[in-house]
Amino acid sequence: MNLLKNAIINATKNILRNKLINLLCLGIISFTLLIYGIFTYISTNLNIITKEFSKSIEAIFYFKDNVDIQEIEHLLEKIRQNLLVEHVTFNSKKQAEINFSQQFPELKYILSEFNESPFPSSMEIRFKPEYDLDTKINSILDEIEKMNIIDSKQINLEWAKKIMTIKKFITIVGLFLSSILLFVSIFIIYNVIKLNILYRKDEIHILKLVGATNWYIKFPFIIEGALLGLFGSIMAGIILYGLLKLFPSYANFIFNLIKGVITVEVIPASLFIRLIILGTGIGLFSSLFSTQHFLKN
């Protein structure tokens, strides 16, 4: 208990003694974790959005004007019988008009200028969630689209796919940057601890001669590394939080389209905890490495 207390006191003293070097150290650790945090944040959110989009495939087909209702009924029946389809709903022109005026009551007056509903009739097909776009669904969608009663289509999964591509790109860039910075951090902490060991060489020698164990001597340096990592990660977390608070539109720019549909957390607690574990881990690892090297016996 006393030994642990002494080690922590010694480590703190060390950090306070070499303020400049330790500040540099803190800076690089928190910068590393900040970059990692930003990229993780973006990619996690993109993931959430894609998931939301691709829970199941939904396709909307708009019918041309003046299509015979018999033909539509026939098509709906055929689609309904398809095993891949969960359900299909028909939206008449009238229904579309009602939906619009319910969603945007303040724009209702516009509708009064039309004799007939300006919206096309449409059908919405929801496929069973176990299928994705690459299977037979694609051919079904293509087949329907080619029919001469169909005007245009809209598929949710195309969006999801685009976002997924962006997400992959961002993840790769993030991992690349983070790993370079990770090595820089480890290198710097390793050397800061080395400097501290050299700085205290005489003291270490005396401690050994009066019977200190190797662990007694190593411990403050290891704690020092861990504390640097811990403070660095807390700093990174605070800065990340601040960035997302200060520039909410910046952080949400990608997600504007679906705002309200999906709740995007400002900074998830799990990310904060991950930063702290990662930071402390980096510090611990680097200082352990350094003491193994420079405090052999």
Binding site: N6, D202, I206, L207, V210, G211, A212, Y216
Partner: peptide, 28 residues
């Protein structure tokens, strides 16, 4: 051990210097 060059810790008080062998043992 009493060293020829004493090997005292220059920034610690005499009390602290003498206490070192006990501190490293985690003595109360």
């Amino acid at each position: 051990i009493v060293f020829q060059d004493f090997k005292l810790l220059s920034k610690r008080t005499i009390h602290e210097n003498v206490a070192i062998p006990l501190i490293i043992r985690g003595e109360r």
